[in-house]
Design a protein around this nucleic acid. Structure first.
Length: 782
RNA sequence: GGGCCUGUGGUCUAGUGGUAUGACGCUACCUUGACAUGGUAGAGACCGGGAGUUCAAUUCUCCCCAGGCCCACCA
């Protein structure tokens, strides 16, 4: 009778929930093991990547629980971001702009409940052991309060500053953009050879892809060793179309190989322009507005969008004979990852966290963190070494966590909110005191905090930093941060930064970096490629345990192509496990359970692997032991004993079967959490001490019972049986075909002495002769 | 351009200084009393390419090639 795996999984899911199997016990005296789960974006759908990464995390959580830890396994949903705002706007057919920030946050929190429900159901269906009573959202009151508290603390430490700084700016979203929000995009563009003129009227050709920045030109650079332009240095050049003269300067950052080897510097065309601006003390000529148009410096092109202005300027240059050549090129430009608009560099008032001075410390301190796999630390180091700007934390967005900040209308003084009033919304709330200039009128900060400013506080949110001091002291730092390698530079780094600032400690002891679930060809799964496989589909088609099995196969950190056939193997394994256990119970029905162990299961070896986060190395050998050794040989050999021999040897065999099957179940329970629960609850009730197999302790092997002699005997039986099977197969006979006579030649016949019976019964041999010979051989007669 | 990682039978993968593990697939045979979502057996790889170290390299070193991720550059 086949078991309905789906019904079965549902049944146990409900059972776990009803009995709060995964609830964190605040009162327990056991040591805590805590996990800082990545909060997935609320979208209503679970990705294969979620199923993959969370399953792996779950193996660890379940293992730790079995090892006697009080496991703290919380999860949050990320709804503090543009993606969520857009989703809610679309769903409700509203615009966030039409609501106050506070109202819109409320709308988001309520409007995403439906998506949350779907995701919760999905995570539950794969059997992830989250404690759902700990659920938080990255825009909820706790998160806002934590973020604002963090802001206040950084302010106390004089780590915050606000200044008019060249900022990477998205003219489409009209917001500042962080280094990490950039993306490369290859676009087609034109290299324009444009004529600048010397005072004497000599034509100097300068190549540029951005002629619309001519009105922002402040200098022209050549390489110091470039002989071609030596005599120009120090002179001035006339910018075409505009009444503008700029100096020619030397700088090694000008590449003689590129274009004509002479380059114009505009404030600001790119990052090099910015470096020159500082290095050569150049004037600031901003020709671009925040919405991506030319301003009054653009003269007749004023008000034009960047792309249009470029076109018109090129036309006018052509007309005046000032455009010598145009070369179509393809080049990579920085675009905003969300809207793919080219980034501009504009000065604007932004809040920054000062941290560039601590780069070395960030690297050195993180050495105390256990990185799994260890080489991932290099990516973190790389990122920090490449950092050039302080952390810009302002976003010109309506939706998000507000700054707890006002500005005095009269004197411009910055007023920071009081601790006890958090969380505040400066657009709605007012400072409690007058400004020191006596004014009572304030302007609330309209900007919101970079989402990473809040997301970098998940350990503080999980451990209730702003709500429960005693609890926080007990729980912080957390034990484990599992996350993807794509966000080492963002999430991992920012979280370390915050914890070092606030707690002067690392936020966790270990960080594990999981790989990605890819499509079968090794490509990233994405909607546009149409190669997305939904985990729910796979659960429906196979079962959740099969999906978990797949997630348990690869080495942590490896990207894994999703192969449906792995699901088939997973389900077969589940079936095999159930069937073999059923046999064990049948065979051992009326026999008292003994305490005999058998070789090679070695739970402590598996434990070491888990402790090293190498769970796949625990899963595979356990599976192989169970299937290839236990089921294929041991069960077969023991069958005849159990069925035919009701004497003492039968009892021993049955006891061994029972013992091994149970220990195997325990070892597999972190992976196949449903099947093992089913088997334990229905067939091994006598062994089960707790309400669930997932509350049982990790099995201990009684090493004193490992008997080398017995192992030798076991190996000899397996060898002989395998050979006899082969002979029968070669003779095209069924495996249970009776054998009249068999002759086994073996170097040490003594080892088979006691087990000749076993061989005879297993292989239906009537007469068995064992002879001594250096060469091992088996002959059979039918 | 820089950093990190990966490259083992058709596919995925284990592993080691002395030519290699397992799975899936494939072929043949077997309805044996837990399981045909099964069993047994078999074919199939000179471990990306080249050079070096060594008695010996898939395993160590260097170079190259391919793929991935991150960073930088991008007039």
């Amino acid at each position: 009778m086949a078991l309905d795996l789906h019904e079965n999984e549902k049944k146990w899911q409900q059972y776990w929930e009803k009995n709060s199997i995964y609830k964190f016990d605040r009162k327990s005296k056991k040591p805590v093991y805590s996990i800082d789960t990545p909060p997935p974006t609320v979208s209503g759908t679970m990705h294969m990547g979620h199923a993959f990464a969370f399953s792996q995390q779950d193996f660890i959580a379940r293992y730790k629980k079995m090892r006697g830890f009080n496991v703290f396994h919380p999860i949050g949903f990320d709804n503090n971001g543009l993606a969520t705002a857009l989703m809610v706007e679309k769903k409700k057919k509203i615009k966030s702009k039409n609501f106050s920030r506070e109202e819109f946050i409320k709308i988001v929190l309520e409007g995403t409940l439906e998506e949350e429900k779907k995701m919760i159901a999905a995570f539950k269906s794969i059997g992830i052991s989250f404690d759902w009573t700990l659920l938080y959202r990255t825009i909820d009151k706790l998160a806002r309060k934590t973020a604002q508290h963090s802001f206040l603390d950084l302010n106390r430490q004089e780590r915050l500053y606000r200044k008019d700084a060249p900022t990477m700016w998205c003219p489409n979203c009209e917001t500042a953009v962080a280094q990490a929000e950039l993306e490369d995009k290859e676009i087609a563009s034109t290299f324009n050879n444009i004529v600048f003129k010397t005072e004497k009227g000599k034509e100097i050709i300068i190549a540029t892809t951005r002629p619309e920045l001519l009105p922002a030109c402040v200098a022209v650079f050549v390489h110091p060793t470039d002989g071609r332009y030596k005599d120009l240095v120090g002179k001035k050049l006339k910018v075409p179309l505009f009444d503008l003269w700029v100096p020619v300067k030397e700088d090694p950052r000008a590449d003689p190989e590129k274009g004509t080897g002479i380059v114009m510097c505009c404030t600001f065309g790119d990052q090099t322009d910015m470096e020159w601006y500082y290095a050569h003390n150049l004037p600031l000529r901003m020709a671009i507005t925040k919405d991506g148009r030319l301003n009054e410096l653009g003269e007749k092109y004023r008000g034009q969008k960047i792309v249009n202005a470029r076109k018109e300027i090129i036309e006018d240059l052509k007309k005046e004979g000032l455009l010598k050549e145009q070369k179509p090129i393809k080049h990579d430009v920085n675009v905003h990852e969300r809207c793919k608009t080219e980034i501009e560099i504009l000065p604007s008032k932004q809040w920054f966290v000062k941290y560039l001075d601590l780069k070395d410390e960030f690297i050195v301190k993180a050495e105390a963190l256990q990185w799994v796999p260890p080489f991932m630390k290099a990516r973190y180091d790389n990122w920090i070494n490449g950092l050039q700007w302080d952390w810009s934390i302002s976003r010109q967005r309506h939706y998000g966590v507000p700054f707890p900040v006002w500005y005095c209308k009269k004197c411009g003084e910055i007023i920071i909110a009081e601790e006890k009033d958090l969380p505040v919304d400066p657009l709605k709330d007012k400072p409690k005191k007058k400004c020191k200039c006596g004014s009572n009128e304030f302007i609330g900060e309209k900007d919101t905090l970079d989402t990473w400013f809040t997301s970098s506080l998940t350990p503080q949110i999980n451990c209730r930093w702003v709500e429960d001091k005693a609890f926080f002291e007990k729980m912080f730092p957390m034990d484990l941060r599992p996350q993807g390698h794509d966000i080492i530079a963002l999430w991992a780094f920012n979280t370390v930064v915050k914890a070092l600032f606030h707690q002067q400690k690392l936020p966790w002891k270990t960080i594990t970096i999981n790989g990605w679930a890819l499509d079968p060809k090794g490509k990233k799964m994405s909607k546009s490629l149409g190669n997305v496989v939904r985990p729910e589909e796979m659960i429906d088609k196979y079962c959740a345990d099969a999906l978990r099995y797949w997630a348990g196969l690869p080495v942590l950190g490896e990207d894994v192509p999703f192969m449906e056939k792995e699901m088939v193997s997973g389900r077969k394994f589940v079936t095999k496990l159930i069937n073999a256990s059923r046999f064990v119970i049948m065979a051992t029905k009326d026999i008292k359970v003994g305490k005999i162990d058998k070789k090679k299961l070695l739970p402590e070896d598996k434990a070491i692997l888990f402790d090293k986060y190498e769970f796949s190395k625990a899963l595979n050998p356990t599976r192989n032991f169970f299937w290839l050794e236990f089921a294929d040989f041991y069960i077969e050999e023991v069958k005849s004993r159990v069925y035919n021999d009701k004497g003492s040897s039968g009892k021993v065999a049955a006891a061994v079967l029972h013992e091994i099957a149970w220990k195997t179940l325990l070892l597999l329970s972190p992976f196949l959490s449903y099947a093992t629960e089913e088997i334990a609850q229905t067939q091994f009730k006598s062994r089960l001490k707790e309400k669930s197999i997932h509350l049982e302790s990790w099995p201990e092997a009684d090493t004193s019972l490992i008997d080398e002699e017995a192992e030798k005997i076991g190996d000899a039986i397996n060898k002989v049986v395998a050979e006899m099977r082969k002979k029968k197969t070669e003779a095209r006979k069924p495996l249970n075909a009776p054998v009249k006579k068999a002759v086994v030649k073996i170097e040490d016949p003594k080892v088979l002495k006691e087990v000749e019976d076993v061989i005879k019964r297993t292989m239906s041999v009537k007469n068995l002769e064992v002879k001594k010979d250096k060469e091992f051989s088996v002959k059979i007669e039918f």
